[in-house]
């Protein structure tokens, strides 16, 4: 029973983390920052600001939100702040995708079975 509750708490924490990640990525600018970092690897905060013609302040705000969701990591080297994607946290949206791909695929198979059964009953 304790195990069951622990498992449930873990599952709930995971779902909440997924919500946070997806909410964070619901913003187009933040998705574009991730996309840029995906292509570039690691970038300085100033480079990201320049790429989007954004103020340093504006980019910093987005980066803080992305960091809070665990989507990017920051490395401080002297005066430079380097940002890169944290791939582990992006795994969750992919899991969501795979879960629902499987879920709906199975539901449609069941729908086929359902209409076939219904057809048979009508014939009788």
């Amino acid at each position: 029973m304790v195990d069951h509750r622990k498992r449930r708490r873990r599952a709930e924490a995971k779902e909440e983390q997924l919500s946070l990640v997806l909410h964070t990525l619901a913003d187009r600018s933040r998705r574009e920052i991730i996309e840029l970092l995906r292509e570039a690897g690691e970038l300085k905060v100033g480079d990201i600001a320049e790429a989007f013609s954004m103020s340093l302040n504006g980019v910093s705000k987005h980066l803080k939100v992305l960091e809070k969701a665990g989507l990017v990591e920051r490395r401080v080297d002297g005066r430079e702040h380097w940002i890169r994607v944290s791939w582990a946290s992006l795994q969750q949206p992919y899991e969501w995708l795979h879960f629902y791909q499987h879920f709906w695929s199975e539901r449609l198979d069941s729908l086929v079975d359902y209409v076939k059964d219904k057809g048979k009953n009508h014939e009788q």
Partner: peptide
């Protein structure tokens, strides 16, 4: 990344398949 599409050919009329999605009895089954 957050979109997916699944499709299937269902051996029933369009009306029957459509109504199955709104029928509590059918939903309970599939």
């Amino acid at each position: 990344n957050f979109e997916l599409t699944v499709s299937r050919t269902i051996p029933a009329s369009r009306k029957e398949v459509f109504e199955a999605w709104l029928s509590p009895d059918a939903l309970q089954r599939f």
